[in-house]
Amino acid sequence: MTLTMAALRFGLVGVLNTIVGLAVIWALLRLGVGDYPANACSYGVGVCCSFVLNRTWTFEVRGPVASTEVARFLTVFALSYGANLGMLTLMRGLGFAQSLIGQGAAMAVYSACFFLLSRHFVFAPGRAAR
């Protein structure tokens, strides 16, 4: 699969993941669950959804899931989120505190890191089978 097609699929998975995450938050808030638990549950569901869809559809990995593959995915998620926070901190220092510009830049860095690390570290061809 081409890099462009994989990136497009990754983006579509992200959009779907966002919709699912918001639905989980909405449902839990309606059930009286607080903001923090609803947010945590949403991220939990989102990480699982992201793993399955990116593995099978974006990067077309087949076969059984190895525990090392899951560990790599969670590591990539954490590193990408760290890059997000780093960019957000930088943007705040540049005068973009409480700004959609700062948040947008942070989201772009997160998405780029998550895609590239997923493609080359988590779901690289033949890697999951090892």
Score class of each variant (00 low, 15 high):
1 M>I: 04
2 T>V: 06
3 L>V: 06
3 L>D: 05
4 T>S: 09
4 T>M: 08
5 M>G: 03
6 A>C: 09
6 A>Q: 15
6 A>D: 13
9 R>C: 06
10 F>Y: 12
10 F>K: 02
11 G>W: 10
11 G>H: 10
13 V>K: 00
15 V>L: 13
16 L>H: 00
17 N>F: 06
17 N>L: 01
17 N>K: 02
19 I>W: 09
19 I>Q: 03
19 I>P: 00
20 V>S: 06
21 G>S: 01
22 L>I: 08
23 A>D: 11
24 V>E: 02
24 V>F: 02
25 I>Q: 13
25 I>T: 14
26 W>L: 09
27 A>Q: 11
28 L>G: 06
28 L>Q: 07
28 L>N: 09
33 V>F: 13
34 G>Q: 05
34 G>E: 12
35 D>G: 06
36 Y>C: 02
37 P>W: 07
39 N>D: 13
39 N>T: 15
39 N>S: 15
42 S>Y: 04
43 Y>S: 09
45 V>N: 01
45 V>D: 01
45 V>E: 01
46 G>V: 07
48 C>R: 01
50 S>M: 05
53 L>P: 02
53 L>K: 01
54 N>F: 07
54 N>H: 10
54 N>K: 03
55 R>Q: 01
56 T>C: 11
58 T>V: 14
59 F>T: 06
59 F>Q: 07
60 E>R: 15
60 E>A: 12
60 E>L: 11
63 G>A: 03
63 G>P: 03
63 G>L: 02
63 G>K: 04
63 G>Q: 04
66 A>W: 12
67 S>A: 14
67 S>H: 07
67 S>W: 09
68 T>S: 14
68 T>K: 15
68 T>F: 08
70 V>R: 11
71 A>W: 12
74 L>G: 02
75 T>L: 15
75 T>P: 00
75 T>N: 10
81 Y>C: 08
82 G>W: 10
82 G>M: 14
82 G>N: 10
85 L>D: 08
85 L>V: 11
85 L>F: 11
86 G>S: 08
86 G>T: 06
86 G>Y: 06
87 M>N: 03
87 M>R: 01
89 T>Y: 08
89 T>H: 03
90 L>T: 05
92 R>K: 12
92 R>M: 06
93 G>L: 00
94 L>Q: 10
94 L>D: 02
95 G>F: 03
96 F>V: 02
98 Q>E: 09
98 Q>R: 15
99 S>G: 04
101 I>N: 04
102 G>P: 11
103 Q>H: 05
104 G>F: 07
104 G>D: 08
105 A>H: 11
105 A>D: 07
109 V>A: 15
112 A>M: 12
112 A>T: 08
112 A>L: 13
112 A>Q: 04
114 F>H: 14
114 F>G: 05
114 F>E: 00
114 F>L: 06
116 L>Y: 11
116 L>G: 00
118 S>M: 04
121 F>G: 05
122 V>Q: 09
122 V>L: 04
124 A>Y: 12
125 P>G: 01
127 R>I: 08
129 A>L: 09
130 R>N: 00
